[in-house]
């Protein structure tokens, strides 16, 4: 790997690893995942299913929270505190800086997700469940979704304040999870121009629901290999496009 990208990635990972807020969110993620045991007591039906359903949802929620909160500050803080001056005056290209930041946060999320997943698997085993490879697949898909979210927040962080970046990222996240209603919305449109616009938007907006396979996993099924491959490709292309856009914007930035 390019030494500049590696150096920045390792340092970004180290920054998160030394941030108390990161551990706090991981702790709450684990706590809420484990509290699914309580929910299973209060709910009728298959206790293990409830346990998995609530636990995975808690891990998902806290991982997304960490990714957004860390991502929106990723570039902004560097520019605001002027730490970027000492880096970009060295032989580091701006695309290397953006990629390093992205990979650093991706590594952080991988570590957080791995820790939460390990605890969750142990928890399932302790409660009489067995090892289910489908849960592993769920975590892999969640990680892919997190990569998209990191790229979205990084893109906004490259040119705006954390508050605006937060609003934009959360908005896209929410839109991305109701994309299954988009076709119904499109059908309501009459004007041809609006139809074309809505078609363009359909491909531009992130379809994050593709990564959510919780219901299948909890019910003991899993998407087919072709669907998974398509989702992985979609995630990779979408993330790459967002990063390319972030690089384009960041290249034009000036540091006063």
């Amino acid at each position: 790997m390019n030494p500049g990208i590696r150096g920045i990635a390792v340092n970004t990972f180290r920054e998160s690893a030394r941030n108390k807020m990161f551990y706090l969110l991981v702790f709450f993620g684990v706590l809420f995942a484990l509290s699914s045991r309580l929910v299973s007591f209060l709910t009728l039906g298959d206790a293990m299913k409830v346990l998995k359903d609530t636990g995975l949802a808690a891990i998902n929620f806290f991982c997304v929270l960490i990714a957004i909160f860390t991502g929106i500050n990723l570039v902004y803080k560097e520019v605001e505190k002027k730490t970027v001056l000492a880096i970009l005056s060295k032989p580091v290209r701006r695309d290397e800086f953006i990629l390093g930041k992205f990979l650093g946060l991706a590594l952080t999320m991988l570590a957080a997700l791995a820790a939460m997943a390990a605890i969750f698997f142990a928890f399932i085993l302790l409660n009489g469940g067995g090892f289910d490879w489908r849960i592993l697949l769920y975590f892999a898909m969640l990680f892919l979704e997190l990569l998209v979210i990191i790229a979205v927040s990084l893109l906004f962080s490259a040119f705006t304040t954390p508050i605006l970046a937060f609003i934009f990222t959360v908005s896209l996240y929410l839109i991305g999870h109701v994309m299954w209603t988009y076709n119904e919305f499109k059908a309501l449109l009459r004007a041809p121009a609006m139809k074309v616009l809505s078609e363009i938007l359909y491909y531009l907006l992130p379809n994050l629901d593709k990564f959510n396979i919780k219901n299948e996993v909890v019910l003991g099924t899993a998407p087919g290999a072709a669907t998974i491959l398509y989702t992985v490709l979609y995630g990779a292309v979408y993330t790459a496009a967002l990063l390319a856009l972030a690089v384009l914007i960041f290249r034009r930035r000036e540091f006063q």
Binding site: G4, I8, N11, N19, I87, S89, K90
Partner: peptide, 25 residues
């Protein structure tokens, strides 16, 4: 380059920061 009123990552030590700088070169 030494920037005016420089600020470096405050979660690092001087040794760690310089190691980071060497990685960029």
């Amino acid at each position: 380059f030494l920037p005016e009123n420089p600020f470096f990552y405050d979660y690092l030590s001087a040794r760690e920061y310089l190691r980071f700088a060497t990685s960029l070169f």
